[in-house]
Measured scan of single mutants.
Amino acid sequence: NQESVVAAVLIPINTALTVGMMTTRVVSPTGIPAEDIPRLISMQVNQVVPMGTTLMPDMVKGYAP
């Protein structure tokens, strides 16, 4: 099972992602793959992401799977 990126904290809208904001977990449905965390650093979320929420591609500005 592939791990997906999950919010480790509440991430406010338009916040640039940092390593500490993200964790990984096997979830269903799957979100952004864990191995993409290095690509996500400094990208901004386009909505509020509650802690424990799986990051989906459409939540991150400029992210393309």
Rank of each mutant, 00 (worst) to 15 (best):
R39K: 10
E35V: 12
N1V: 05
G20A: 14
S4W: 04
L55Q: 00
M21A: 05
I13V: 13
S42Q: 13
T24G: 13
M22A: 01
M59C: 03
I32H: 01
V26L: 11
M56P: 01
P65A: 10
Y63H: 04
A8M: 08
L17S: 00
M43S: 06
M21I: 03
V5H: 00
L10G: 10
Q2S: 14
V48P: 15
R39F: 06
T24V: 05
R39V: 03
I37H: 03
A16Q: 14
I37W: 06
G62H: 09
G62S: 10
M51G: 09
P12L: 07
V49Y: 01
A16Y: 10
I37C: 04
K61P: 07
N14G: 09
I11R: 00
V19L: 12
P29I: 06
R39T: 10
L17C: 01
S4H: 02
T18G: 04
V19W: 12
N46A: 10
P65M: 05
I41F: 08
T15Q: 07
V19S: 12
E3T: 05
A64D: 11
P50Q: 13
A16G: 08
L40M: 15
T54D: 01
P33N: 15
T18Q: 11
G31C: 03
T24Y: 11
V26S: 14
V6W: 02
P50Y: 09
N46L: 08
V45P: 02
V6L: 05
P38S: 08
P65R: 05
P50H: 09
V27K: 06
M43N: 03
V26P: 07
T54H: 02
V45W: 01
R39I: 12
P38F: 07
Y63K: 04
R39G: 04
L55W: 01
M43H: 09
T15R: 07
M56F: 10
T15D: 08
V49I: 15
S4Y: 07
P57N: 06
A7N: 01
P12T: 08
I11Q: 00
A64I: 06
V45H: 01
D36F: 09
T53K: 11
N46H: 07
I13Y: 06
M43T: 13
Q2M: 11
G20W: 13
N46K: 08
M43D: 04
S28A: 07
T18Y: 05
Q47R: 13
Q2Y: 07
R25D: 08
Q47G: 06
S42C: 07
V5A: 15
Y63M: 10
P33Q: 07
A34L: 03
S42P: 03
E3L: 08
Q44F: 13
A64K: 14
N1F: 06
G20I: 09
V27T: 14
L17W: 02
M56Q: 14
P33Y: 14
T23G: 14
R25W: 10
V6S: 05
E35G: 15
K61Y: 08
G31E: 02
E3H: 08
P38N: 09
I32F: 06
M51I: 15
V45M: 05
T24P: 04
Y63G: 03
T15L: 10
M51S: 08
P50I: 06
P50C: 07
T30C: 04
M59E: 01
V49G: 00
A64N: 12
T53L: 07
G20D: 13
Q2P: 15
L55S: 01
M51E: 13
V9R: 14
M59Q: 05
D58P: 13
L40S: 00
E35C: 05
I41N: 05
S28C: 14
G31Q: 03
P38T: 12
P65V: 11
V27A: 15
M21P: 00
A8T: 09
T15A: 15
N14V: 02
G31A: 05
P57A: 11
V5N: 00
P57T: 15
R25S: 05
N46W: 09
I37R: 14
M43W: 08
A8N: 05
T53S: 07
V27Q: 07
M21R: 04
G31L: 02
P33H: 10
I13E: 12
I11P: 00
T23S: 15
N1Y: 03
L55P: 00
N1I: 07
Q2V: 11
I41R: 13
D36K: 14
M21Q: 08
M21N: 11
R25T: 07
R25K: 10
M43P: 00
A64Q: 07
V49M: 04
T15F: 09
G62Q: 09
S42N: 12
M56H: 08
A16W: 15
V60T: 02
P12M: 08
T23M: 09
T18A: 15
V26G: 06
A64L: 12
G52H: 11
M59Y: 13
E3D: 11
V48G: 14
V60H: 01
N1S: 15
V26R: 03
M43Y: 10
L17V: 03
K61M: 09
L55A: 01
T54N: 02
M56G: 09
V19Y: 11
M59D: 03
L40V: 07
G62F: 06
P65D: 08
E3F: 05
I11K: 00
T30I: 15
P12H: 08
P33F: 12
A34H: 11
I32N: 01
L10E: 13
A8C: 04
T18I: 07
N46V: 04
P12S: 09
K61A: 11
A16D: 07
G20P: 09
I13K: 14
I37E: 03
M22E: 01
I37N: 02
I13T: 06
